[in-house]
Amino acid sequence: MEDKFAEENLNLIIRNLNGTATLEESQALEDWIESSAHNQTTYVQMKNIWEISDRQFKPEEIDVDRALSRVLKIISTSEKAQRTLWFRLQKIAAIMLLPLMLTGYFIGRGISDHLQINRQVTYHEVFVPFGTRSNLVLSDGSIVWLNSGSKLKYPGQFENVRKVFLEGEGYFEVESDTKHPFIVETRTLNIEATGTKFNVSAGENDSRIEITLLEGKIEVNKNDEAKATAFISDLQPNQHMTYDMLTGDFHLLNQNTDKYIAWKDGKLIFRNDQMIDVVKKIGQYYNVEIELRDNELMSYRYRATFENESFDEVMKLLKLSSPIDYVELERDTLPDGTFTKRKVIIFKKK
């Protein structure tokens, strides 16, 4: 008897869900639902399952990247209109200020153009093309920012150990979970954390790996498959580690960490950095090949902050504030009609 009753209600629910119920039937269902909290929950859960089972529309066919670019564009346009007066005031005050739109533009492009997700395998891979940046949320809620030209491999769902593979530069804000360590594996080192904020720079063509810790604690281990994992060092907040892959030497520095993670907010910060590193960073950031044609210049120490400037603006400022001059080479046309990468040559100011 009870089964029979339940079945009648079940049919009533389904007819409502697939749109074949009469008005009377809908009313009857409504009465049944309102008669108890248990009925209410039963109905809501069944409706939820029923609707999620609908595969007429496939989430894979939704173009998230295009939608995001579109929304960022709408937002920027409405802001531009609102801020005209504000911009004028800033100009009068002669503050060197940034086109605010640029951040959104870069983020939009970084995600939009090149999120390569393979749904067939357990691992996803994201590649961020040169000249753009991108960010993503992992299945445990941790957030990763990826710098220009970087690659991250990560599982769709973490198992016991939260492990990702990084080539290039990434900034990690790890969700705290002491039971499940979070490991960033690079070519030579593994960085282990539980809930922290840190930056790892391990480019394919770099001979050194740089790790910066902002908050919490991380452990750096050698990533050598032949041997057991070899402990290298712990890092404390505001410490910066440089690890030489050729010699295995490392240095720890206590210093302001801002400049190491500024890239994620669209800033370039230099604090007594050697010109050779400065131009490398600028080149990576704007996807421009920069050649430094003077040995003396390489070790010149430079200090500046660029925020959302165009490449041309950065070069002009660099020229104004250091003993350099530069020329940009003509770009060649490739067979497919596109241009070769921009190339700039820097030399000593005469």
Partner: peptide, 18 residues
């Protein structure tokens, strides 16, 4: 912060469309 906005967008967009 538009980066944070983008993170939220990417996390929820498909699900909300569904």
């Amino acid at each position: 912060d538009k980066a944070a906005f983008s993170v939220v967008f990417v996390a929820y967009y498909s699900n909300l469309v569904m």
